[in-house]
Simulated assay, not measured.
Amino acid sequence: MLQWFYLHGLASGPKSRKAQLLGAFLQERGQTLHRIDFNDGGFSHLTVSRQIRQVSARIAQEERVVLIGSSLGGLTAAWVAQESLMVERLVLLAPAFGFPDCWLTAGELEEWRRLGDRLIYHYGQGRSLPLRYHFVEDARTWLPHRLTRPVPTTIIHGRQDEVIPIQSSRDYAKTRSWVELIEVDSDHALGQLHPRVWQEVIGERRQ
């Protein structure tokens, strides 16, 4: 049986608005959305590597998996699918390709390195929390050009995205025939999407 997993973004959580919308949308169709919490293990020492290990361990016993990843969760999903053959489809919502260098200026990143940590507003907890600079060093090792496994992929990205430039998704899709990019009039939060987009997420238009 096909299992659906949602991977939230940085400083978010499994109860985010997108997670709840997708969960309800799938529930109406008799499906369950499993939501992975990347805050387990502490936010301050979070890394992309830790997220990849967490997801890989969670889906290890499954046979057929769809990963829906938002922002940093999208980058994580892509890397899990690179190694996990049970992942048969990806849905990436404004995936964080090129993160965090596309997010902060060189000066801001240097200040983060010098201080050792940076306060990040955590939407899931409603307060700012420190994140160690090792997060940056680790994230830079997960380069999108190394993602080569042809997993059917739908990317949904807002043209007004102020965090992850849509060009990163355009570049990614341009060199991979198995990737479909859907551009929408929205920002990074993808807060107001037409129901057609959610139908695309679960593949209803293909059926």
Rank of each mutant, 00 (worst) to 15 (best):
K174R: 14
E83N: 03
H157M: 09
D40P: 00
I155A: 04
V48E: 01
G30S: 03
S186R: 15
Y121E: 10
W4N: 12
V65M: 12
L181V: 03
K18C: 04
A81C: 09
L72F: 15
P95I: 02
S16K: 00
R118P: 10
R170Q: 15
G41P: 07
H45K: 11
Q82H: 05
V197P: 00
R89L: 09
E200F: 07
A78T: 01
L129C: 06
Y6P: 13
T32W: 01
G30F: 04
E62F: 14
E88V: 04
A94T: 14
L129F: 05
G191K: 06
D187M: 09
R118C: 13
H45Q: 15
R50F: 03
L115V: 02
W103N: 12
G158Y: 12
G73D: 08
W198G: 01
L131G: 12
R159I: 13
L143R: 15
G13W: 01
R205K: 07
W198C: 02
G191S: 15
F135P: 09
R114M: 02
T148D: 07
A11D: 01
E28L: 10
P130D: 05
K18V: 09
A24Y: 00
L147A: 06
I166D: 10
L147S: 08
A77L: 08
L147N: 11
F5Y: 15
Q192E: 10
G42R: 00
K15I: 01
G203R: 14
V136D: 05
D138P: 03
P152R: 07
P100C: 09
L181C: 04
R29L: 03
E62Q: 15
G69V: 03
G42A: 02
A60T: 04
Q125V: 00
V197D: 08
V201L: 05
D185A: 14
I164E: 13
F5L: 15
T32Y: 03
F97K: 05
W142V: 14
R58L: 14
S169G: 06
F99S: 06
R206Q: 13
L92G: 12
P130C: 05
P100D: 06
D185W: 08
A106F: 02
D40H: 03
Q27D: 07
I182P: 01
L119H: 07
P144Y: 08
H45C: 11
Q167I: 06
F43Y: 03
R127H: 11
G9R: 07
R50Q: 07
W142E: 08
T153I: 04
L93R: 10
H134N: 04
M1K: 06
L46F: 14
I52C: 13
G203Q: 14
E110T: 07
G203I: 03
H8Q: 06
C102A: 05
E137H: 09
G116V: 07
P14M: 02
R64C: 14
I156W: 14
Q61W: 05
L7T: 13
L21H: 06
L46C: 06
S44E: 15
I52G: 13
L33W: 04
A139N: 12
L147H: 11
V163W: 07
R17Y: 06
L193D: 08
R114D: 00
G116S: 05
Q199D: 12
